[in-house]
Amino acid sequence: GKELVLALYDYQEKSPREVTMKKGDILTLLNSTNKDWWKVEVNDRQGFVPAAYVKKL
């Protein structure tokens, strides 16, 4: 099944490779191999968020 993460904080994208999320959002985790930036999918968009801003559910 898909792995989900919870947004712990708001995050505003700073580049086209990133995505914006709001605290409390549930996101689909696509890739967590990089310890600093995790790739997630939110609202049919894929991009990176800081790993410290999310936690695995």
Results as ranks from 00 to 15, higher is better:
K35N: 12
P16D: 13
K39N: 07
L4V: 09
D25H: 06
D10K: 03
V40L: 04
V19W: 05
F48L: 10
K55Y: 11
T33V: 10
N34T: 07
E3H: 12
K2D: 08
K56Q: 08
D44E: 12
L6A: 07
E3G: 09
V42D: 10
A51N: 03
E3Q: 14
F48C: 11
K39D: 03
D25K: 03
L8P: 00
L4P: 04
Y11L: 01
I26P: 01
V40I: 08
S32Y: 07
Y11V: 02
P16R: 09
P16N: 10
E3T: 14
K55N: 06
T28S: 09
K14S: 10
A7D: 00
W38S: 03
D44W: 08
Y53P: 01
A7N: 00
E41P: 00
A52K: 15
R17T: 13
D25T: 08
W38F: 07
V40Y: 02
N43L: 13
T33G: 10
L4K: 14
I26D: 00
K14F: 06
L57V: 12
K39S: 08
R45C: 06
V54Q: 00
A52L: 10
A52N: 14
D25F: 05
D36G: 10
K35D: 10
G47V: 05
V54A: 03
E13Q: 13
V19L: 15
E41Q: 14
Y11N: 00
V54I: 08
R17W: 15
P16G: 10
N43M: 11
L8Y: 04
K55P: 01
W38C: 04
R45T: 08
K39T: 08
K56N: 07
K55A: 13
G47D: 01
V54P: 01
W37H: 04
R45F: 05
K2N: 11
Y11T: 01
R17Q: 14
L8F: 04
K39P: 01
I26G: 01
A7Q: 01
Q12T: 15
P16A: 13
R45Q: 08
Q12F: 13
L8A: 04
G24A: 03
Y9Q: 13
N34R: 10
V19T: 06
L27C: 09
K22R: 12
V54N: 00
R17E: 14
W38A: 04
Y11A: 01
Q12G: 08
V5I: 08
R45P: 01
T20D: 04
M21V: 10
V40G: 00
D10F: 04
Y9K: 15
Y11D: 00
L6Q: 11
K14Y: 05
L30D: 01
V54E: 01
G24C: 08
T20W: 04
L6C: 09
P50A: 02
E13F: 06
A52E: 10
T20Y: 04
V19E: 01
N43F: 12
Q46C: 09
D25Y: 05
L6I: 15
L6W: 07
K2Q: 11
N43V: 11
W37S: 03
K35G: 09
K35Q: 11
L30Y: 04
T33D: 15
A7T: 04
L6P: 00
E41Y: 07
S32N: 09
L6Y: 11
A51G: 05
L29K: 02
K35C: 10
L27F: 07
K14P: 04
Y53W: 07
Y53D: 03
V42K: 15
L30P: 00
K35I: 10
Q46R: 12
Y53C: 10
L30V: 12
K2Y: 12
K22Y: 12
M21R: 00
V49S: 00
E18N: 05
M21L: 09
D25M: 14
K55F: 11
L57R: 04
S32E: 14
N34A: 09
A52H: 13
Y11F: 08
K2F: 13
L27I: 08
D25R: 02
A7G: 03
V54H: 01
D36K: 13
Y11R: 02
G24M: 03
A7M: 02
F48D: 04
D44I: 06
W38N: 01
E41D: 07
E41N: 06
V19N: 04
K23L: 05
N43H: 14
G47E: 02
A51K: 07
V5M: 05
K22S: 09
D10Y: 06
D44Q: 11
E41F: 07
E3S: 11
S32L: 05
V5G: 13
L6K: 08
W38H: 03
P50G: 02
Q46F: 08
A51S: 11
V19Y: 04
W38V: 07
L27G: 11
L30R: 03
L8W: 04
F48N: 04
A51W: 02
Q46K: 09
F48S: 03
D44T: 11
P16I: 10
I26H: 05
K23R: 09
R17N: 15
S32R: 07
E18W: 03
F48E: 05
K23G: 05
V42H: 15
G47R: 02
K55S: 12
S15Y: 06
V40C: 05
K22V: 09
L8K: 06
V49A: 03
T20M: 04
K55D: 07
W37L: 04
M21C: 06
D25S: 07
L57N: 03
N31W: 07
S32K: 07
W37P: 00
G24N: 06
Q46I: 15
G24F: 05
T28P: 15
V40A: 02
K39Y: 15
Y11W: 12
V42A: 14
Y9A: 13
L8D: 02
L4C: 09
L57E: 05
L29S: 02
R45L: 07
V54K: 01
L29R: 01
K56F: 10
A52Y: 09
V40T: 01
Y9E: 10
L29P: 00
K23Q: 10
T28K: 12
P16E: 11
D10E: 06
V19H: 04
N31T: 08
T28Q: 11
A51V: 06
K2G: 10
F48G: 01
V19R: 02
V49L: 02
A51I: 03
R45D: 04
N34F: 08
A7L: 02
E3D: 12
L8I: 11
L29G: 00
I26W: 05
T20C: 06
Y11C: 01
L57M: 10
V42M: 15
Q12L: 13
L29W: 01
T20Q: 05
V19A: 05
S15G: 13
M21N: 00
D36P: 03
E3W: 12
K35W: 08
K55G: 08
R17A: 13
D25N: 07
N31I: 08
K22D: 04
S15C: 09
L8H: 03
K23I: 06
K56G: 05
V49P: 00
A51M: 05
V40E: 00
Q46V: 15
W37G: 00
S32I: 07
A7K: 01
D44F: 09
K55W: 10
L30G: 01
P50C: 03
Y9G: 06
M21T: 03
K23T: 07
I26T: 06
S32C: 11
I26Q: 05
G1P: 15
V54C: 12
V49D: 01
T28F: 11
L30F: 04
W37V: 03
K22W: 09
K39V: 14
T20H: 05
S15K: 07
K55V: 15
K14H: 09
S15N: 13
K2P: 14
V19M: 13
D36T: 14
T28A: 10
R17D: 14
T20V: 03
F48V: 07
P50L: 04
L8V: 09
T33H: 12
L27P: 00
K22P: 00
V42R: 15
L6E: 12
D25W: 12
A7C: 12
A51R: 12
D36S: 12
G1A: 14
T20I: 03
S15V: 04
K56S: 08
V19I: 14
L6N: 03
A52W: 09
P16T: 11
T20G: 08
Y9F: 13
L29M: 04
E18S: 07
I26N: 03
M21G: 00
